[in-house]
């Protein structure tokens, strides 16, 4: 294994980390596994394609997460809030239907072809990492992910809103009695989760290019990450996302025959050993 492969793993892991932290937060708060998360990521990537072509990639980096936050608000206000009393599994299946709708709408707007998104010129070259020339853009992904993860954890630990989110994730009913507005907290979290998915999509666009199957493909990996990390656990999801990125990339080099199966093997192994995942329910 060389440094480039390891870095590839870290870059993929970064994207999984950003995506799964959003999914884990929504799950922690609403108890709903958001099957539309892959579709949100895909929306981010396609929006990034358009914004990059008309304005610039830097603009996309701002615009896409904001646009996705709006979609997140719709998701929360129209569905999650009204369906609180329904079983979480039903609401999960509704998000699956939403995923189908969103992906098809994207198909109608942007067509069925793979679309390339150029990285900005500054990031287009290679950088020297311990003597290996490595694409600068992937290092950029990694850097953004680390900054984002640190900021998110810091915000949850320090701010009042963060405290409310952590409380509401532990026990929504008690938090409501204690005067925390769970609906408002949930709106924040779902918007934030969707925005993170948009950010991941934007970052992924120049890396993988943009294509119709990208949402479903990454959704399965992200679901596995969240379950392995311990449903509802932000730290667990982040760690598991990074780990899966590395394992998959490195596995592709060492065990090319089995690499595609590694996430499933990991999932079954972890759940057989510890049904609540690595970190249990904690944010």
């Amino acid at each position: 294994m060389n440094i480039a492969q390891l870095l590839n793993g870290l870059a993929l892991g970064s994207l999984l980390m950003i995506l799964s932290s959003g999914l884990a937060m929504i799950y922690g708060l609403r108890g709903v596994m958001n099957f539309a998360h892959g579709a949100l990521y895909m929306s981010g990537a396609y929006l990034a394609y358009t914004v990059t072509n008309h304005v610039s990639f830097w603009a996309a980096l701002i615009v896409c997460p904001l646009a996705l936050a709006v979609i997140g608000a719709v998701l929360e206000l129209v569905f999650f809030r009204h369906l609180q009393t329904r079983s979480h599994i039903e609401v999960g299946l509704i998000t699956f239907g939403l995923a189908l709708i969103i992906e098809r709408i994207i198909g109608i707007i942007w067509g069925p072809h793979t679309l390339p998104v150029p990285a900005p010129d500054v990031l287009n070259g290679t950088s020297n990492v311990f003597g290996t020339a490595y694409p600068t853009y992937r290092l950029f992904i990694l850097a953004i992910a680390v900054v984002m993860a640190a900021a998110l954890v810091f915000w949850l630990r320090v701010s009042d809103t963060g405290l409310h989110i952590r409380a509401a994730s532990q026990d929504g009913e008690t938090s409501a009695i204690l005067g925390i507005n769970v609906d408002r907290v949930s709106l924040t979290v779902v918007c934030l989760g969707a925005a993170l998915a948009g950010l991941a999509g934007t970052l992924a666009a120049p890396y993988f290019s943009v294509q119709p199957g990208m949402g479903m493909a990454i959704l399965i990996n992200v679901l596995i990450v969240v379950v392995v990390g311990g449903v509802g656990s932000l730290g667990g999801a982040m760690a598991a996302g990074m780990a899966l990125g590395i394992v998959q990339t490195v596995g592709a080099v060492w065990l090319p025959n089995l690499a595609a199966l590694l996430p499933y093997i990991a999932l079954v192994a972890v759940l057989a050993w510890r049904p609540t995942g690595f970190a249990g329910k904690r944010v």
Partner: peptide
């Protein structure tokens, strides 16, 4: 959810 994920996997 655990059952859904395991059967999905």
């Amino acid at each position: 959810i655990g059952f859904m994920m395991l059967t999905l996997a």
